[in-house]
Amino acid sequence: MTDSQSLTHLERLEAESIHIMREVVAETENPVMLYSIGKDSAVMLHLAMKAFYPAKPPFPLLHVDTRWKFREMYAFRDRIAQELGMDLIVYTNPEGVAQGVNPFTHGSELHTHIMKTEALKQALNKYGFDAAIAGARRDEEKSRAKERIFSFRTAQHRWDPKNQRPELWKLYNARKQKGESIRVFPLSNWTELDIWQYIYLKNIPIVPLYFAAERPVVERDGVLIMVDDHRMPLHEGEAPMMRRVRFRTLGCYPLTGAIESTADTLPAIIQEMLLARTSERKGRIIDQDAAASMEKKKQEGYF
């Protein structure tokens, strides 16, 4: 009887992520899963459904809404939450709304700080979540290469890169004082290719914006921005033009660059990615700041 089988890379990643999510549920009091509607969130949610099957994942989804996501993202979010029977909490920073914060007048950095970083802290405090499961990967960005899987935040939600706990084997130390919280990254060891491959293998639904289609865009500083609604202020002489584009990452539509593409199937997307010579986050304008910007954002509480 030979049952021995060499597990594939994806099977190993899947098992690791499931193990991590179960540890969170077993060792924390009030966990939540941050759901950003993108492809990484899609994989994470799929893994959560697996980890606790036949039970539902014993935590709600939290979407920190800046109010500037693509319309297709909102529609997708509501449909998925309903289909899977997951509780979905949508939180928007009320002060940001009151001040009318938006990426056009306030710029990407301030918008992101108030509507994402601050909003997330407010939401975690409001609901008393002591663990937030999020879909960040170590291969996304240089400062994330050293991130722990269980990442500790002070009661002020600050991340101290010099004071993180060693993680050995599969032993995660989830103990914390009252008020402190943990960000947990079950997809830490996945690469962008792994994510796409898994979506393909498991037929996981994703937002249609990832697939190429004719969309109205304007070109600004060499970046194609989709005109997703009437709030987008057009410059003098600027007119939306229809281009066959898709998105490699999804965020606030005014801050997310489209790429010209004909890839309208998963294999085509993966192929395009394999041939691509621009790495994933190039489409995100917020990362084009100083090299250490992400690290600074993380210290402040951004993922």
Partner: peptide, 26 residues
């Protein structure tokens, strides 16, 4: 893009994916 072209690329990429999927990990 012609149907046959698309099919060819699609076949190739699927083989690529399979190959990648069955790689092991060090």
């Amino acid at each position: 893009m012609s149907h046959s072209q698309e099919q060819m690329i699609s076949t190739d990429i699927e083989q690529t994916l399979k190959h990648h999927e069955h790689k092991n990990l060090l």
